[in-house]
Simulated assay, not measured.
Amino acid sequence: MGTLKPLVIGDLVAKYPVIQGGMGVGISLSSLAGAVAKAGGVGIISTAQIGFKQPDFLKNPLEANLRAIGEEMKKAREIAPEGIIGFNIMVATKNYASYVKKAVIAGADIIISGAGLPVSLPEYVAEAAEEAGIKLKTKIAPIVSTVKSAMVICKMWDRKFNQAPDLVVVEGPLAGGHLGFSREDLSELGVDTEDVEHTFQQAKYDEEVRGIIRLVREYGEKYNKVIPVVTAGGIYTHEDVMHQIDLGADGVQVATRFVTTRECDAPEEFKEAYIKSSKEDIVITKSPVGMPGRAIKNPFLDHVANTPFKLEHCYDCLEKCDRKTIPYCITKALISSAEGRTEDGLVFCGSNAYRAEKMETVDEVMKDLVFGE
C-alpha cells in the first residue's frame, strides 16, 4: 500500500489528500463537509439550492440560498474548527456572482467551480473581499475535464486577472451528478455519451490527466507557486486513489463513496437507493439545460421520458433554463430525493454507486481511501 502526502493548497494543509466532492441538492451540507474536514480531508458544501429547507424558499429562493450558505458554513465550522471547508458553486447557477461573494464572506477556505468555465471567479472573489473589507483568503479551483478546457481557463485567468488557479480539479467521465464536461468533451475523448461504461478508456484518459498536470505545472512555474491537481470521477478504493497519485495527481476528489455514510446530509431513503442499486441501474441522463448527468434509473426517469411536462413553479436555479421546453424541473426533482421521495425524484450518483453495500462512517471511508484498511 502506498503512502499519501498531505494536500497543500497555498497556506492550507489537509492531513490527507482527499477532497469530498460537492453534491446538491442537500446531499453535502454542513454535516458531511464538517465530518470530512474533521477527519483530515477537505469538506465541501454544495450551494445548489442549499436553502431548500428555509421557510421562505418558495417565495425567495435566492435570499433563502444566500442565508443558508452562512448557516451551513457556521455549522460545519462548529464540527471542524481547524478543518478545511469550502463550497462547490456551479457556473450554470443563476446569480452565480452572488453565491460566490456570499461564500467568500461566510469564510470559505476554497471555492470549487464547474458546470461551465468559471471565467469570472477571480473577479467575484476579489470583489467580495473588498466590499466586505476583509482579507482575501479564499482559494479558487476550476473544474476541468480536458487539456483544452484547462488551457482555456488558465489562459483567461492569466490574461484577465494576472493570476493562476490555487488548485485544479480534473473531473473524468465516471463522475456523478451534473457532470463537469459536455457531450462534445466526451466525443473528443472517444467516449460515447450513451455507453460511457464500455467506451471509456482508462489508459487514454490517464494521458489526458498527465497532459493537464503538465499544463498546470507550467502556470505554477510562471507564478512561482505550486498548483496541486486533484482528480475526480470513479474513485472508490485505495487502489483507485493510488492510481491517480501514480499518474502525478496531488490528491483525489471523492463524492459517491461518502453518500452512504452516517454523517452524509442525504436522507436514509437516498442512501438506500445507492445500496440497493445494481450496475445496470446507473445511467447517463440529460438535464433540462442539456448537460449530461449520471443518475440511478428509477420510476421518475421513466416517467419524465414519456410524459409531457408543465412547469408549475420556477425556482430560478439555472441560468440557461428554458421554462417552455424543459422535460422536468430539476430543482423539484432533486428536492424530492433530498426529502426522501426518491421514487419521485432524481437520484444523482457516480459510476460506482452500485458498489455501496452498507452504511459506513466518514472516518471508516477516509481510512479505507488513505490506507486501504
Score class of each variant (00 low, 15 high):
Ile9Val: 14
Leu12His: 05
Tyr16Arg: 07
Gln20Glu: 14
Gly24Lys: 06
Ala33Asp: 03
Ala35Tyr: 02
Val36Met: 10
Gly43Thr: 02
Gly43Tyr: 00
Ile45Phe: 03
Gln49Gly: 09
Gly51Pro: 06
Phe57Val: 02
Ala68Trp: 01
Ile69Ala: 08
Met73Gln: 02
Lys74Asn: 11
Ile79Phe: 05
Gly83Ser: 12
Ile84Leu: 12
Phe87Trp: 04
Tyr96Met: 07
Ala97Gly: 08
Val100Arg: 05
Ile105Lys: 13
Gly107Lys: 04
Ala108Tyr: 04
Asp109Ile: 04
Ile111Ser: 07
Ile111Arg: 04
Tyr124Leu: 13
Tyr124Gly: 09
Ala126Ile: 15
Ala129Ile: 11
Ala129Gly: 13
Thr146His: 05
Lys148Ile: 11
Met151Asn: 10
Trp157Asn: 12
Phe161Gln: 06
Asp166Trp: 01
Ser182Trp: 05
Asp185Cys: 04
Leu186Pro: 02
Gly190Val: 11
Gln202Phe: 14
Gly211Trp: 00
Arg217His: 02
Ile227Cys: 12
Pro228Ala: 00
Gly233His: 08
Ile235Val: 13
Asp250Gln: 04
Gly251Ala: 12
Gln253Leu: 14
Ala255Cys: 09
Asp265Lys: 02
Ala266Thr: 06
Pro267Gln: 11
Ser278His: 02
Lys279Val: 09
Glu280Ile: 06
Pro288Tyr: 02
Lys297Ser: 12
Asn306Val: 15
Asp316Glu: 15
Ile330Tyr: 03
Thr342Glu: 00
Arg355Asp: 13
Glu357Lys: 12
Asp363Cys: 05
Phe371Arg: 07
